[in-house]
C-alpha cells in the first residue's frame, strides 16, 4: 500500500510541472501588452515600467518561468494588481469559502442523492421511482446559475426566508452564522450532483438486489429492511463512491458559477474578476492553487478506493 502511495506521489511530479507551465503561459498567450492592459489608460510610463520589471516581462521566456516558479515554491505568489494584496494569503482565505460551499453541497448531494436512489430502487417502477428519476433527470439538465437565480427569486424575494448573497450576517463570522447563507448556494450547487448520485445509486442497487446472495438473504426470511440496508446497500455503494469522486471536479467547477450568482466570497469570484480585470498574478495564483489542490484531492480519493475496494491491485 505504502509503495502504491509513493508511486502515485512520484507520478504527480511531472503533472504538477506541466500544470505550472500551462498556468505560467496564460499570461504570455494573451494579446496586447500585459502591463498596459493591467494598468489601464491613465497609467504613466513610470508605473508601466515598474510593473514590467516586477513581472520580469523583459527577460527571455524560460528565465521568466524559472523566476516565477522559484518564487511560487518559496511562497511568493506575487501581488494582485487589482486587489493590491499578496496573492497566496488571499487565495487561501477565498479557497476556504469555496471548500466550505463545495463540502456542504457534497454532503447534501450524497445524503439526498443516495436516499432518493434507494427509494427508487426498492420501489422500482412505482410513482415515487418515476417522480424521483424524472426530477433527477431535470436536475441534471438545469444550468446551475439559472437554477440559482430562480431559487433566489422564490426563497429570497417572494418567500423572504433566506438571504440571497454573502456568507455572514453583517459584521459577524462563524460557522453557525453561515448556515442560513449556505442553504441556497449549497442546494443550487448540489442539484446536478445529487441527480447523478441518485441515478447511480438506483442502478447499482438494482443490480445488487438481483444477485444471488440477496435472494438467499431474502429466502432466509430476513426482514426486507435488513436485506436492503445491511446487505444490498453496502455493496451497491462501491460504484457510487466512484461517482462521488467524480463529483468533486463538478462541485469545484459549479462553485465558480454559484459563487457569482450568490456573491459567495470564494475563489471562483476571485478568479473570474481577475480574468475580466486582466489581473494576471491573481489569475495564475487562483488557477495554480485550485489545480494543485484538485490533483491532491484526487490522489486521496484514489487511495481511499484502493482501501475500500479489494479488487483494485496496488501494482
Amino acid at each position: 500500500m505504502l509503495n502504491y502511495i509513493l508511486k502515485r506521489l512520484l507520478a504527480l511530479i511531472p503533472v504538477l510541472i506541466g500544470v505550472s507551465i500551462l498556468v505560467f503561459l496564460i499570461l504570455h498567450l494573451s494579446p496586447g501588452d500585459p502591463a498596459q492592459i493591467m494598468l489601464g489608460t491613465k497609467a504613466t510610463q513610470q508605473s508601466l515600467d515598474a510593473l514590467r520589471e516586477q513581472l520580469g516581462l523583459d527577460l527571455p521566456l524560460h528565465q521568466q518561468y524559472f523566476q516565477w516558479i522559484t518564487n511560487v515554491l518559496k511562497g511568493d505568489w506575487g501581488r494582485s494588481i487589482q486587489l493590491k494584496r499578496e496573492v497566496l494569503p488571499l487565495v487561501l482565505t477565498r479557497f476556504k469559502a469555496t471548500a466550505t460551499l463545495a463540502v456542504f453541497a457534497g454532503i447534501i448531494a450524497i445524503t439526498f442523492g443516495v436516499l432518493a436512489g434507494i427509494v427508487s430502487a426498492t420501489k422500482q417502477y412505482s410513482l415515487w421511482d418515476r417522480l424521483l428519476m424524472f426530477l433527477a433527470l431535470v436536475g441534471f439538465c438545469l444550468p446551475v446559475f439559472w437554477l440559482g437565480l430562480i431559487l433566489q427569486v422564490i426563497f429570497g424575494l417572494k418567500l423572504n426566508w433566506l438571504p440571497v448573497s454573502g456568507m455572514y450576517p453583517p459584521g459577524q463570522t462563524g460557522l453557525g452564522n453561515m448556515l442560513k447563507f449556505l442553504i441556497l448556494p449549497g442546494f443550487s450547487l448540489a442539484t446536478a450532483s445529487m441527480a447523478e448520485i441518485a441515478r447511480m445509486t438506483r442502478s447499482s442497487m438494482l443490480e445488487v438486489i438481483r444477485q444471488d446472495y440477496i435472494r438467499t438473504a431474502r429466502a432466509k426470511g430476513l426482514p426486507e429492511r435488513v436485506v436492503i440496508y445491511s446487505h444490498a446497500l453496502r455493496n451497491a455503494l462501491i460504484p457510487v463512491i466512484t461517482v462521488v469522486g467524480m463529483q468533486i471536479g463538478f462541485l469545484l467547477s459549479g462553485a465558480v458559477l454559484v459563487e457569482i450568482v450568490f456573491g459567495w466570497p470564494g475563489i471562483g469570484t476571485l478568479m473570474v474578476n481577475g480574468i475580466l480585470a486582466r489581473d494576471f498574478p491573481l489569475v495564475q495564483g487562483t488557477i495554480l492553487f485550485v489545480a494543485t489542490t484538485y490533483v491532491f484531492v484526487n490522489l486521496i480519493v484514489d487511495i481511499v478506493y484502493a482501501f475500500l475496494d479489494p479488487r483494485i491491485s496496488y501494482n
Binding site: Q152, G156, P163, V164, S165, P170, I260, V261, F262, G263
Partner: peptide, 12 residues
C-alpha cells in the same frame, strides 16, 4: 458589501 450581480443586489 460587494454584491456583483445586479439582480441579487436588488433582491437584497
Amino acid at each position: 458589501r460587494p454584491i456583483v450581480e445586479d439582480q441579487t443586489r436588488l433582491t437584497e
